[in-house]
Design a protein around this nucleic acid. Sequence first.
DNA 1: CCAAAAGTGTTATGCTTACACCCATGC
DNA 2: GCATGGGTGTAAGCATAACACTTTTGG
Lengths: 233, 233
Amino acid sequence: MSMDKSFKKATEKWRLLVAADIVVFSFIKNELNVLLIKRKFAPGAGQWAIPGGFVRETESLEEAALRELHEETGLSQHSYLEQLYTFGEVKRDPRARVISTAYLALVEISEKIKLKASDDATEARWFPVNNLPILSFGKAHEEILHYAWQRLKWKFEYTNVAFSLLPKEFTLSEMQSLYEAVYGRKIDKRNFRKKILSLDLVREVDDLRREFGRPAQLFKVISRDIKIYSKIF
Amino acid sequence: MSMDKSFKKATEKWRLLVAADIVVFSFIKNELNVLLIKRKFAPGAGQWAIPGGFVRETESLEEAALRELHEETGLSQHSYLEQLYTFGEVKRDPRARVISTAYLALVEISEKIKLKASDDATEARWFPVNNLPILSFGKAHEEILHYAWQRLKWKFEYTNVAFSLLPKEFTLSEMQSLYEAVYGRKIDKRNFRKKILSLDLVREVDDLRREFGRPAQLFKVISRDIKIYSKIF
DNA sequence: CCAAAAGTGTTATGCTTACACCCATGC
DNA sequence: GCATGGGTGTAAGCATAACACTTTTGG
């Protein structure tokens, strides 16, 4: 059998780097938040960026994304993870030819999750999606965030992925305000409750949340497995 | 500013290859077809596979996918192209660590498009999606095909991408049988025509197709730009 | 009793689906 | 005149969207 020249050629000049970036969303104080880090190194040192880094030979893309997330932010849990898109233009990184695969992750912030201490050189912080800082890497990271948010909207419309951002027990009003935060628009309360209850996704628990006004019924998820529906909202 | 160790480390051992694969669909004789090549080299020499190959340092992922397609099949046109998914598990290719990004392309076969001559060592052929040969690369390529078909179904449901598989002029019955081929199920004729015409996507042309039975009205597309609809069928 | 948020039904409209017969042509 | 595919309308059921007031609690 003859030799495969294109394989030989490719291995003679290994000159492509592969990176994994990870956009992490959470729902904090009725706002959709994104996790960003302050970059330590060029390019873009001192500026905010999406967590991410180079993939090692011995790990999958997904593993690399989660490892970088842990190293850069201290976060080691997630309730949902999916691949977003792979950016492969030639000029993206000034230092070398880099292909980078972006992931979308969701975390619940019910138990207080600690981010990496900010006295470390790499600081990590949650930013509300409607109040983001200037990002490094020109428009590239902004586009990734925008794309991730779009994808999240779509997932909310057609799947039960919303539960991955909610704590174990929650009120329907909380759930509604999560939908409103993701969609960026108001939803009618009666229609929302009617639809969610008709889908048989949640069950009442024998407890109430007392804050302001009338106490609210608490619910829990029946199953957190991701399912696709025809259209939720 | 201090040095970025992870970048240094990554560039010291370039050991990841990046490949691009491309799943090409066409609509031939009322069947959905996929373009496959007979592999010339190991692994999987002599077996059928999805076209693809290694990405060069100077080209984008998309360019690589299209270049490989042209080199391996002779095809140099497409009416639609989108990124599908990036496969990044560690063990995919026995020869080296390979990350591979799969693309989905559509072509219209109106003007007879010539595939690479089969006396060349690399043969290229269209296969109906319901009658595929054994593929090389174990289950991996089968999964990619399955995934591509799933994505195509989704695109047909929610966008006007169907026009990318139809010739300039077509009958509504042709268009319906394209939908049926992609979905793998029958659609009611009256409902189909009603819906398509109500979306204002096509315009009658002043010509008929004569084959069997009553001649059929020919239509053309008003605009081939991809648009998203709430649900077509 | 006041502020605050929870909770609750009905109606109109539009979309989806199911369904059967006549039409125009070539042979 | 018959075989072949082209072309047409209506009604029922379902999902969506709009809309306002009462309830329960804490202070």
